[in-house]
Simulated scan of single mutants.
Amino acid sequence: MATLFFISHPEVVVDPLVPVERWHLAPSGIERMRRFAGQPALSGLRQVWASTETKAIEAAGILAGRWGLGVEVLAELGENDRSATGFLPPAEFETVADAFFAEPQTSVRGWERAVDAQTRITDAMRGIVRQHEGGGDLAIVAHGAVGTLLFCALAGRPISRAEDQPFQGHVWSATLPDLAIRHGWEPIAPRA
């Protein structure tokens, strides 16, 4: 049975002067993604998708390049919309992110509601799976929060930060085409 891999981009260069969706992978993130991309378990990949955010495209490019594939992009795979606040210092970001998961029906400080982001990412992923041609494995390289929301939807679990990745650069997988969860978040590679 084929596999869907959902991969969150690894570490990025945080620059408060650059829009978050244009942040690039940090050298440590590039290295971790390269190590992940070389795993024999990924040799069945036939398609790689990414959100339109720079960090996801860069990570997807590393993965796709390793296996001689192109990258398809789709805006609906993007992270939850946080443009209302823009960049937040790490401690403040974590507090708002906690509220985002704890109050999924509420727009916390103008952020996209978790329930809306969950519907968007689930619909996008199902559309990709429906058109996935030729069988084989499929990778979606996107973001941690929407990856967690998608995982919760497929696993039949309530939205909860307890299901979130502990840090950037993780993967979970499900079987194709039935989308039964194989495993939850696991690091793509050890951090240096």
Rank of each mutant, 00 (worst) to 15 (best):
V12E: 12
P104S: 03
E163G: 00
R46W: 03
S107T: 00
L63R: 11
Q105V: 06
G44W: 11
E92A: 15
V115F: 00
L176T: 03
A124V: 04
R34M: 09
Q165N: 12
Q118M: 11
L4I: 07
S173W: 01
R22W: 14
A59M: 08
G136F: 13
D123K: 14
A145H: 09
I121T: 11
G70Y: 09
T85L: 09
W49K: 12
A145Q: 07
L25V: 00
Q168P: 13
L4F: 02
G61R: 14
A56C: 04
V14S: 11
A41H: 12
F100C: 00
A99M: 10
I181A: 04
W23F: 14
E133A: 15
F101W: 07
T148H: 04
A117W: 06
V14K: 14
T106R: 11
G156H: 04
Q168E: 12
F93L: 08
V18W: 10
A56P: 00
I121Q: 08
G68T: 03
V13E: 15
F87S: 07
L179W: 02
A162T: 11
T148A: 11
I7G: 01
P177W: 05
C152Q: 08
D81Y: 03
L179E: 02
D137G: 05
A180H: 13
V171D: 00
V108G: 02
T52C: 15
G144H: 00
F5I: 00
V115W: 02
T3L: 05
D123G: 11
L42E: 13
P90K: 11
I121C: 10
A162Q: 13
A124Y: 02
G38C: 04
E58F: 07
P158D: 14
I121D: 11
F101P: 00
A124Q: 01
F87V: 03
T52D: 15
P104M: 01
L138P: 01
L4R: 01
Q168Y: 08
A162K: 10
F93D: 01
G169R: 07
F167R: 14
P10G: 06
T148S: 05
P89K: 13
L63C: 09
R82A: 07
L45I: 12
D98A: 13
G110Y: 06
F151G: 09
V141G: 00
P10S: 09
